[in-house]
């Protein structure tokens, strides 16, 4: 018999598969900007996975880590964008 926790784990698995699909974009992306977009998407998906796993395991700590991860990944994205702006023109 399934219950809600099983569904949460299933959703987390689907998010993990999405993350793997995004990694292909990081490998394929023709320009550096495409790779950064893939990276940004992965960050959002990781936050979603952490929140859903925290609910499934009844651990509030995971959600705290998700908040910090969201803010730190935002700062990382800003720095990558800043680097690309001053980077090499084609």
């Amino acid at each position: 018999m399934i219950d809600l926790n099983t569904l949460f784990y299933a959703a987390a698995t689907l998010f993990a598969i999405s993350i793997i699909v995004c990694i292909f974009r990081i490998f394929l992306g023709p320009t550096a900007a495409d790779r950064s977009v893939g990276f940004d998407t992965i960050n959002t998906l990781v936050v979603a996975t952490m929140i859903i796993l925290g609910a499934a395991m009844w651990e509030t700590l995971f959600i705290d880590i998700a908040i910090v991860y969201a803010i730190l990944s935002f700062i990382t994205t800003l720095f990558i964008a800043k680097y690309l702006e001053g980077g090499v023109a084609e």
Partner: peptide
Amino acid sequence: ALLATNPTGAHALARAAHKM
């Protein structure tokens, strides 16, 4: 946190791509 940070990150990436 997500609502505040995610669109801003996208904006920064778009601007960087255009400047590149």
